[in-house]
Design a protein around this nucleic acid. Structure first.
Lengths: 68, 68
DNA sequence: CTTTTTTATACCCATTCGGGTATAAATGTA
DNA sequence: TACATTTATACCCGAATGGGTATAAAAAAG
């Protein structure tokens, strides 16, 4: 599961809008947008702030993971 | 496994020095240092450049992962 | 179709990353 | 101890993130 798809999916599952997620995570709205759009050059700590809301964090995962 | 520990472990397992890893990954030496020291505010794309060398990439992992 | 809600793009700008280099500290070895 | 290798810290600076806001586009609801 790609990171940006993961976030978008979790956000929808929690029935949150992007502004709501941004506020809960303590990041800017623009950041949430760029994250869900798959921007690569984001800061790790900001990504973690978002993932933490869903009980996740950034980690190393094997590359050829099958998309599920 | 924390990200910075993971990188350091993989690098040692590959018998590489920090300068060697930096060159292979196409990032600066300072970046490798800060990564292995657990600096939080690093850029995702740079981290991926390093992880890719070991067949890994950044992804979302459950938080309470037991350290192995 | 109209209205509302949600998402996406553009601008300005302070903050900070990341590279390079130099230097110091630490680790390992003879 | 002395020497070599590896790792860590400090400085300067260009480049890019991220926040905020405003606006436009898209999607959903009526």
């Amino acid at each position: 599961m790609l990171l940006h798809s993961f976030v978008k999916q979790k956000r929808k599952a929690a029935d949150l809008t992007q502004p709501e997620l941004a506020e809960k995570a303590g990041v800017g709205l623009r950041f949430v947008r760029e994250l869900e759009q798959g921007k690569e050059s984001l800061r790790l700590d900001k990504v973690n702030q978002v993932l933490k809301l869903f009980g996740y964090e950034v980690g190393a995962t094997p590359i050829n993971r099958d998309n599920l």
